[in-house]
Amino acid sequence: MNLERIMQIDRRIVYLFVAAGTILPIVFVIGLPVSITPPVQMAFDRMEDLDPGDVIMVSFDYGPSSAPENAPMADAALRHCFSKGIRVIVIALYPLGGLSEAVNELNKVVAEFPDLEYGVDYVNLGYKDGAQAAMRKMNENIHEVFPTDVRGTPISEIPLMREVRTYADLELCFSLATGIIGEWWANLVNAQFGLPVIVGPTAVSAPKYYAYLEAKQMAGLLGGLKGASEYERLVLDKYPDLERVYATPGLYTATKGMDVQSIVHLIMIAFILFGNVVYFTGKRRPRKAA
C-alpha cells in the first residue's frame, strides 16, 4: 500500500524537482562540454561550402514562446553568415511575434558587426501572412510577396534585392521554426522548387525532421537547444573572433541553456528509474507473501 502511494507520487513533487533543476544551473553556471552530432555538422558544412557574397534567406518562423530554443540558433546562423561574408535576406512567416523576433535578433547581431551595410549585406523584408501561399509565390517573385522591406523602402530600391527575384537567386534557406512552417520549407519549397533548406526546429518537433533529413529534403538540422549549442560550438571553433561576442557577460546562449536541460534530463531519468525500482519491488512482494 505504501509502495502504491510512492508510485502515485504527487505530480507537484516532480514539478518541484524540475523547478530546482531549472533554477539552480541558471544561478550557478556549470559550462558542460558540447559534442557535435552529424545533422548539425551537415548544416554547418553546407553553410561553409557557400562563398562570400552568396545570398541566403533566414526565415523567422517562431514566436516568443520558443525563443529560448530558436533565438540562439538564429543568432549563431546570422553570426556565421556575417563572419563569412554571406549576405542575408531576413523574412518572418510566423504570425505571432515572428516579426518582432526577426527585428530584435537581427538588430542584436548586426550591432556586433559594425561594417555591415543595410540593403547591401543584409535586409529585413518583414512579415508576410499566409505562410504556405507566400512560400509558393516566392518561387515566382519575391518582390511581389514583399513589395517593401520592414522599413517601408520599395524593394526595387534595395541594392541586394535587385539581384534576387526568386528562389533560383538564393543559395539556401535557413528556417528557425516552431510548428509546421519549418516542415513546409522541407516538403514544399525544397521538394517542389529545389532550394536547399536547413531547419532549426524546437526539440519537441525535431524527431519528425529526421525523415526529411534522411530523404535529403534538408541540408541540415539543428534539433532544439542541443542543436543550437552544437552550432554555436562549431561557429566558435571556426571563427574564434566571435569569442568576444559569446564571452559577453549576461548573454543568453544555447550552451548555457544546455546546462539546465542536462540537469532536468538527469532528474527525469532519476524519477523514471525510481518509479521502476518501486514498481519491481512492489511486484516481488506479493509473490513472497504467497
Binding site: 516532480v14 523514471i272 518509479g275 521502476n276
Partner: peptide
C-alpha cells in the same frame, strides 16, 4: 513531460 514520463515509462 516530467510527470507524464514518470507515469508512462514502466517496464
Amino acid at each position: 513531460m516530467a510527470s507524464a514520463s514518470y507515469r508512462a515509462f514502466r517496464a
